[in-house]
Write a protein that binds this DNA or RNA. Structure first.
Lengths: 206, 206
DNA sequence: CCCCTTGTCTACCGAGCGGTAGACAAGGCA
DNA sequence: TGCCTTGTCTACCGCTCGGTAGACAAGGGG
């Protein structure tokens, strides 16, 4: 009834849709499931989002904004080279801790084709540029092993997102995971792994 | 009409299903699509596989066997520590080159829950044990950076599979990819990345 | 020669989906 | 007061999907 009700409904619907799309996939999620989960009928959802695809696009945009904000906040005040990569990973893991379906949804976005992912990644473009620049500078200063910075960023992405989404693989490869402790454990392992991968080769003149 | 026709149909159906499940997802693939792609009606498929889930299970088992065979063959004759990790990556990339939907299907298997992935991973269990043992031995001999071998294997898995399946991300992060050359490029980058991540810390004592 | 297994087909069913049509309740505003 | 927008609902439509029932053709073996 209040006019703010509209926008609130919109965002709760989008958040719930991100959860469902992440957990069950886009095709595996029915509009009725999203709607009833927030206590509303399917036709009410269709009032806010005329089609399922429109709902998806809103989810992609919202996810991009949320991730950009979390990473941006995590980077504040971190100036040292090593701290910055770690801060990004920590920010993503923190988001995943309070919203486990979030990384799953991002992976689903990649699965839905380049157009969908583009919609999500658009708002992250400034961060991407900063990241590539950061890596390039680190290589120039011999703080990071020399390699293609764009490819390196891609591989880092797959390692981080993979460690947050491949629960079944984790289960098969290292054993059953449960609770928040294992997430922290994984974060430490990923950070250690990334640190090792970034480290420049042993420099006898160092 | 010949009695061998049955088994041949079975395997062509399974191969086509792996392609479709990988490309469009399990939920996004209809039985009719799989059947008609091999020139047969849906009911003929259901003659060989009574349910969609039965088809999936056959796909999981077949994929596991195929991957185990490819990796096993790739490891033949490779004894040096560095060569072995590289050989596995190369084997997987070669399989992906001739069958792009294969890694996508594996990722889909992980998405379908631990049970499904277990079915796929079961036949790979001996290889997993060899891999963990290999990593542990390398660490004991100071050839590999010391860390949890199971977690390391998991992170390596995510990096390799991610680089073969996250096409949309690759497109957004490093630019449009096309053709076989870019796949080789990616293989080289992943191998360099993994080599860097495995490398033990600089040891002043040589 | 006949039947029975193997493989493929047409026809159909029930359920669930995305989306449309339209009724209806409740403020906000003239 | 009366209307009109906003938000939610019930009812329904058409389509696709997974799965069933059963006809039918064609060898192979008694």
């Amino acid at each position: 009834m209040p006019r703010t009700g509209g926008q609130e409904r919109r965002s709760t619907l989008v958040e719930e849709a991100i959860r469902r799309f992440g957990r069950d996939g886009y095709q595996g999620t029915s509009l009725e499931a999203v709607a009833s989960a927030v206590g509303v009928r399917k036709q009410t959802l269709l009032y806010y989002f005329p089609t399922k695809e429109a709902l998806l696009e809103s989810c992609l945009a919202a996810a991009g904004e949320r991730l950009a904000e979390v990473i941006g906040r995590g980077l504040e005040g971190k100036e040292a080279t090593e701290d910055r990569a770690e801060a990004v990973i920590h920010a993503v893991f923190s988001l995943a801790a309070e919203w486990p379906e979030f990384p799953m949804f991002i992976r689903e976005a990649g699965r839905l084709g380049p157009d969908a992912f583009e919609r999500f990644a658009a708002v992250l473009e400034p961060l991407r540029l900063r990241a590539v620049d950061f890596l390039q500078t680190g290589m120039d200063n011999d703080l990071i092993r020399k390699q293609d910075p764009a490819f390196l960023l891609f591989t880092l992405y797959t390692a981080v997102v993979g460690s947050l989404t491949e629960a079944s693989v984790l289960n098969a490869l290292v054993g059953p995971q449960k609770g928040r402790a294992s997430l922290h454990r994984r974060e430490r392992e990923v950070i250690a792994f990334v640190r090792g991968a970034l480290r420049p080769p042993a420099d006898p003149g160092g």
